[in-house]
Each structure stands twice: as structure tokens, then as C-alpha cells.
């Protein structure tokens, strides 16, 4: 597993380090059966996504003017519960806004996310891997999106991309999905109480961090297609 080089020695730079994303990486097209797949690693948090579609749809779920998007989130252990259902809703509605589902009416697009390891910022990792997988599947999108999580600790410091431990110790955890066109908030999911000022500050920090993720998307796609 990739290690954060900053954690190795420089503890006095911790605050600076906390305003940065953990090391992240991605592998696309790692599964052979799905139409698109990706695994996204953020620190130790890892999610694998497979996309099937546009494919046949159940009559009960068919919509006449657009593709039906189904999102299935599998936890690392055990059966999916209410928390997973809620996350699925977040991921599905974000993808629905980004994907041009109107191009494939009366079909279904199925997105399956498998959590490999959860070390904080899980929802943002799910969103990033979903976006990479959608790119791999070659689905038409009106914009890209990325997920960024930040935590507000007891002293009011904002920590970017928190680990599970940092999330537990903090007062509030906020996750945003940022779109690639206008850099605005597509999705927002929050835990804990916070002030309006802290909310806007968090958005600003996440928007800034989103830049590096979008640059990463661009670089990885560029690298992939320049080789072949």
C-alpha cells in the first residue's frame, strides 16, 4: 500500500500536511467483464467500481426518456444496511446529474461499488472511482465530478481528506462533489454541527483540492491514450 511520505518524519508540518489530499491513485479497466471499471485509492481507502450498460432494463424500472441508473454499494464486510442505501442515493443522484442519460432511453446503467478498505473519506473515494469508471466505460457526460471530504476538528481547524481516526476525533465531517465545469457544489453530505462561515470555508478548501483531482483525471487519461 502507498505510504504518505509526509507522515514519515515531519510531524511539525502536520498542519500543512492536513491541508493536502492524501496520496491518491487510480487504475482503470482492471476488470474484464464490466463495460468500464476503475479502482481508486486515497491513502488507505480503496474502492473498486464496475459499470455495466447501457443494457437491458427491467420493465418496472424502465423510463421512457432516459436510462435508469442503479447503484449498488457493497460494504467490506456484512450486508448493506440503511447507511449504504443512503450513500447509494448520494452517488446515484450525482452520477445522474453528470451522465447524459437521455442519450440511452429505456436502458439501464448499473454501477457496482465494492469497498476494499475504509480509512476515512469513503464517500469521496466512491465518487472519484465512479467517475473514473464512467470515463473508462465511455459513457457520455456533461461534466466530470470529484468528491472531496474535509473534517473540522475541535479547535476549528479544517483537515482535508481525513483518515478514519481523524474523522472520529473531529466535530464535523463534510463531503462535497465538485463539478469540473463551474467548480460548483453538486452534492453535499454533512455530519456534525458547524457554522455558516465554517461551511463556506470548507467548500472553498474542497474546491481548491478538487483542482488537483481534476488535473489527475486529465493526466491519467492523457497518459493512457498517448501510449496506444
Amino acid at each position: 500500500m502507498v505510504c504518505l511520505p509526509l507522515d514519515a518524519g515531519a510531524h511539525k508540518f502536520r498542519h500543512m500536511a492536513d491541508r493536502r489530499l492524501r496520496e491518491f491513485g487510480c487504475e482503470q479497466n482492471l476488470l474484464s467483464r464490466p463495460d468500464g471499471s476503475a479502482s481508486f485509492v486515497q491513502g488507505d481507502t480503496t474502492v473498486v467500481v464496475g459499470i455495466y450498460g447501457p443494457a437491458e432494463v427491467k420493465v418496472s424500472k424502465e423510463s421512457y426518456d432516459r436510462a435508469t441508473l442503479e447503484v449498488i454499494l457493497k460494504p467490506k464486510v456484512g450486508l448493506p444496511g440503511v447507511a449504504e442505501r443512503s450513500r447509494e442515493q448520494f452517488i446515484r443522484e450525482t452520477c445522474e446529474a453528470a451522465l447524459l442519460t437521455a442519450l440511452h432511453p429505456r436502458t439501464s446503467i448499473v454501477l457496482i461499488l465494492q469497498v476494499i478498505h475504509d480509512d476515512g473519506s469513503l464517500l469521496s473515494c466512491c465518487l472519484n472511482s465512479a467517475c473514473m469508471a464512467a470515463m473508462d466505460a465511455g459513457l457520455n457526460m456533461r461534466c466530470l465530478f470529484c468528491g472531496v471530504t474535509c473534517a473540522i476538528d475541535l479547535d476549528g481547524n479544517i483537515i482535508l481528506d481525513p483518515t478514519a481516526k481523524q474523522e472520529k476525533e473531529s466535530r464535523a465531517v463534510l463531503t462535497f462533489a465538485i463539478d469540473s465545469v463551474e467548480r460548483q457544489v453538486m452534492m453535499s453530505s454533512t455530519k456534525g454541527a458547524f457554522t455558516t462561515a465554517e461551511f463556506h470555508q470548507s467548500i472553498a478548501i474542497c474546491q481548491k483540492a478538487a483542482e488537483s483531482i481534476f488535473q489527475f483525471y486529465r493526466d491519467s487519461v492523457g497518459r493512457r491514450y498517448s501510449k496506444s
Binding site: 443522484e93 452520477c95 461534466c143 460548483q184 453538486m186 452534492m187 457554522t195 463556506h200
Partner: peptide
């Protein structure tokens, strides 16, 4: 006390900061 407890936006159209405010 004007403290935000939840800002729940499950996807959909992106919103600007002014709109959120």
C-alpha cells in the same frame, strides 16, 4: 442558534455559493 446541522444535497444540479447562502 444558527448552527447548521445538515446540508443534505444528494447530487443534482451544481449550485453556486451564493445560492447555497
Amino acid at each position: 442558534e444558527e448552527k447548521l446541522c445538515t446540508v443534505h444535497k444528494p447530487g443534482g444540479t451544481p449550485l453556486s455559493n451564493e445560492k447555497l447562502q
